[in-house]
Design a protein around this nucleic acid. Structure first.
Lengths: 161, 161
DNA sequence: CCTAAATATTTTAAGCTTGAAATAAATTCA
DNA sequence: TGAATTTATTTCAAGCTTAAAATATTTAGG
């Protein structure tokens, strides 16, 4: 085989990575569509709300609005709207932060905690079913591989010098 | 170790699968955020528009609205809006289908084709950079593993019997 | 042929999402 | 101290997304 007939290693890697990305995206969409549908029909809820409740449940003392948006990787304004709706249905409350009058701490109410526990149990079962083709070990291996991307440091804007 | 102290294999698998899902979701969000930002700042475009152009570019003769929404796994109404905007800026056209007056075929214009080719080259480079930690072989292995989820058959609603 | 059911698409209302602008409060530093 | 900057949050406009309803057309069955 001569050089003219051979793609460079870089081009081949690039294509393989692009295929990986498209596959990752498709898998994510398929699972997300299924989870959204089930949250809607069985609980009258949505994924963004579930995500917020989940983040708050994992925290001990609630989270500030900005901590929530960092955790979920969505914009501040987005979190404002979702929390507004969760406040409306009584699952979370906004508590002013004593030491910083700009800030708000969001917490689960007792009702919200009970509600989320119910959801979380069922949700784990759904996910386990959707990923049933992966055994424990393979699931762990895949998760480890994806860690390299998921926890890649966020590129920060450079200050002007 | 006695049974009381040991989680069942099922529970452990379930947790591992849940972690895998959360990792997959986080990786997808990180990559998507980066691609969206670059499409916006460098091309004044968006991911949904890129996805539609990409699907049309891969097809030979354009796609019907319903083929587009199947391919992209989004709702019909969603595609209507995105195609409307692409028509506005002259990158695609709606062509009536002779044999079926309900249907529309969407095609890239010459302008749209040239524009997408430009985008696609740069986009592949971005993806390759974001996935740079995976070599060709590892990227292929991961893509294969994800195939099991990405191409899982869609569960259809059962008719009443 | 004619009606009923199915199909392709658009419209609509509500919620999600972003980036940018606006507010308000805390921090920095001269 | 007090002005300038930074930080936390909300508001806003525009676009994305969904599910359901509405329209228009085709297909199937009697």
């Amino acid at each position: 085989m001569n050089l003219a007939n051979m793609k460079t290693a870089d081009s081949q890697s690039s294509k393989a990575r692009l295929r990986l990305w498209l596959r990752l995206l498709k898998a994510q969409r398929r699972v997300e569509a299924e989870l959204r549908e089930r949250l809607r029909t069985e609980f009258g809820s949505t994924l963004p709300r579930f995500d917020v409740l989940s983040a708050l449940y994992r925290s001990q003392n609630g989270l500030r609005m900005s901590e929530l948006s960092d955790e979920l990787m969505v914009s501040n304004g987005n979190v404002t709207g979702i929390v507004d709706r969760l406040v409306d249905d009584g699952t979370v409350v906004r508590v002013p932060v004593d030491s910083d009058r700009r800030a708000m701490r969001v917490r689960l109410t007792d009702k919200g905690t009970a509600y989320f526990q119910e959801l979380a149990t069922v949700h784990e079962g759904w996910v386990s079913d959707l990923f049933a083709m992966f055994g424990k070990d393979q699931a762990e291996d895949l998760a480890t591989a994806l860690h390299a991307i998921a926890d890649k440091p966020i590129k920060k804007k450079e200050g002007v010098r």
